[in-house]
């Protein structure tokens, strides 16, 4: 039996010559395909179907109108509403209302992120906070934001602060919950890697958990925007006062007070367009960028 220390050369003396070449060949062969549809096809498949759906809705509307199932004061023709929209846009009323509401909505949304994100992070990272305040926050998510309006008036009277309170109470829980859920879904393997790399608590949060949670957080942000916008409209519709400026809610109220059906419908369409527009202009590109960078949106073939 040989002694233990008599073997010195215990590994390859020479490297196989073709290893580098085989490795390079494998790299080429296994390069993931990155075939993308041409832009016109991508555009076509994402834009044409919604336009078709809108056409269908308009046709049904027109048919129902022509059948005179409802009197014109209740259901105006699409053409009358279109004319009303043009008038509002030319007269500048629509722009004023959109700007008033949209700026409020976005400011409220931004404040909701500033408040909601740290809350979500804290709940995700401190078990005792999760145990205590977690259920409360999830519960708040199911509160109809209109229910906050009387309380907000009691606190802030009729003022922009009152509107922001309603928006924040609507949006903060979903943003916070979105971040908590996003962090919860981070694969534990990433945290292990962070530990092995020697990241401390804060570095772990900053370099691993937050970036890893971003797709989930984005879903929370989207929902947060939807809640902001809904809460804002609820507040604007319920409280009518000249102190609050002229927003889309006030525009709708005008239509109601004047029994002006085309104005009411035009207001509804504007609210819809702003809500969808923010989604399309803000969230879609953001989501695309995040998912593309991680290779999550390219189709595998």
């Amino acid at each position: 039996m040989p002694a233990l220390d008599d073997s010195v050369i215990t590994q390859d003396e020479v490297e196989r010559e073709d290893t580098a070449a085989v490795g390079a060949g494998l790299d080429v062969l296994e390069e993931p395909d990155r075939i993308r549809d041409p832009w016109w096809r991508r555009l076509g498949s994402s834009i044409v179907p919604p336009i078709l759906a809108m056409v269908v809705v308009l046709v049904i509307w027109e048919i129902v109108y022509l059948l005179e199932l409802k009197p014109e004061v209740m259901l105006p023709s699409p053409a009358a509403v279109w004319d009303e929209l043009l008038v509002l846009l030319h007269g500048g009323q629509a722009w004023e209302a959109i700007w008033t509401s949209l700026s409020r909505g976005l400011i409220g949304f931004a404040m909701a992120i500033v408040i909601g994100a740290p809350i979500g992070l804290a709940i995700a990272r401190f078990p005792w906070l999760r145990a205590s305040f977690g259920p409360l926050l999830s519960g708040l998510q199911s509160m109809p934001s209109v229910a906050w309006v009387p309380l907000a008036i009691l606190w802030f009277q009729i003022s922009p602060a009152m509107i922001y309170m309603v928006v924040l109470l609507g949006a903060v829980p979903s943003i916070a919950n979105g971040l908590t859920a996003g962090i919860d879904q981070v694969p534990p393997l990433y945290s292990r890697v962070g530990h092995v790399l020697g990241l401390n608590w804060w570095a772990q949060t900053r370099h691993v958990l937050l970036p890893a949670a971003l797709p989930g957080f984005l879903a929370g942000l989207r929902q947060g925007w939807a809640f902001s916008w809904r809460s804002l409209m609820a507040a604007e519709l319920i409280v009518t006062s000249s102190k609050l400026g002229f927003g889309l809610g006030q525009l709708m109220n005008q239509g109601r007070d004047l029994s002006d059906a085309p104005l009411l419908y035009a207001g509804l369409i504007l609210i819809f367009i702003v809500g969808v527009g923010v989604e399309l202009i803000m969230f879609r590109p953001l989501e695309r960028a995040i998912l593309d960078a991680r290779g999550l949106s390219t189709k595998k073939r």
Binding site: Y190, V193, V196, L197, L199, V208, P211, A212
Partner: peptide, 25 residues
């Protein structure tokens, strides 16, 4: 240092940035 069965690289970083994070710490 520890290497796993899965590469466990961070998908939000490039190859270089993944290595850079290890270097930083």
């Amino acid at each position: 240092a520890l290497m796993f069965q899965e590469s466990a690289l961070f998908p939000w970083l490039t190859a270089g940035q993944n290595i850079g994070l290890a270097l930083k710490y």
